[in-house]
Design a protein around this nucleic acid. Structure first.
Lengths: 159, 159
DNA sequence: CAAAATCGCTGCGCGACGCAGTCATCCGCG
DNA sequence: CGCGGATGACTGCGTCGCGCAGCGATTTTG
């Protein structure tokens, strides 16, 4: 538990994570700038293309952390830009399904693929076990983030 | 190169990365909300506490991806909140050094530490080699992000 | 069938941001 | 030595993403 060499690895990883995540924010911003979009818009497209099914406005709001009102505006922008289409849900007529427009979104995914190809080069030196370890860590960190978010929202604000 | 099992690991990692990074954005937002700050402000504090030396406004602008004007406003907010202090640089009197105020920033780092402690639990199951692999991957991804950002900015915009 | 909950949308105001211009300061070149 | 250009921080100004509160339509509940 108090193994010094292990503690140093933890500290190193914590520091590297911060840099990594900071770099990601900048990277996402750069992608958005390049496409003439906002970071939120890019993330929304990322979510939509990752899911096989269309999402409702409510779901988009939850996944992006926006209010439903802001999510409506977000979909407005994407629809105006031709990236997504709105379709009324037949099962529940209150709902609106938002689906990506493939030929328009391809421009975005093509950019991702181009950048992702270079990304693979940094993985080529890793063994399969190492890849699995990295993937597993991200999955667990992902899960933990969500529980921590719930904790944070439940905690009383110090302001 | 076209090893199918390896390709699947790549795809899995790519997907998991996206979720991981999306979760981080939400997490960062939740931390900012909890402290009554903006995500940018939190990231700025993260940068300031990670560096041993005070940063200039220009450096903060570069590290956060803001213009110098917006960085000035950012420092204004943090200074008004008591999180940082401005000090004129004696070597170059055009520059202003921004340093965190420990007792004020402690409230933020205390929150990080509290959350970070739980974070360690997900690392306890990993071997030291795995930890090193994860750390190395993040460092390389970090480096690559910056070169990709430069590439993106150099590419002609499709708009 | 009435009451409550849910979903998406819409005014409204706030404020973070980029842009362009300003002033002070530092540096290089003749 | 001084003069022009570069650099750093700051300041109006306009834009626009966002949260908030309220609304109408629809579904669900009792």
């Amino acid at each position: 538990m108090t193994d010094p060499s292990r503690a140093r690895l933890y500290a190193e990883l914590a520091m590297e994570s911060r840099r990594y995540l900071a770099a990601y924010v900048l990277f996402n911003q750069a992608v958005a700038d390049h496409l003439g979009l906002h970071p939120t818009d890019v993330q929304c497209l990322s979510l939509l293309t990752a899911e096989p099914e269309p999402l409702t406005v409510k779901q988009i709001a939850e996944l992006t952390g926006l209010t439903t009102g802001s999510a409506t505006r977000l979909v407005d922008r994407l629809e105006r830009g031709g990236y997504v289409t709105r379709t009324p849900d037949r099962q529940d007529r209150r709902r609106v399904l938002v689906a990506p427009v493939p030929e328009r979104v391809d421009r975005v995914t093509a950019l991702w693929d181009d950048l992702g190809q270079t990304w693979q080069t940094i993985l080529d030196g890793d063994s399969e076990d190492e890849l699995r370890a990295i993937t597993r860590h991200m999955r667990r960190a992902n899960d933990l983030s969500h529980t921590q978010i719930r904790r944070l929202r439940a905690m009383p604000k110090p302001e």
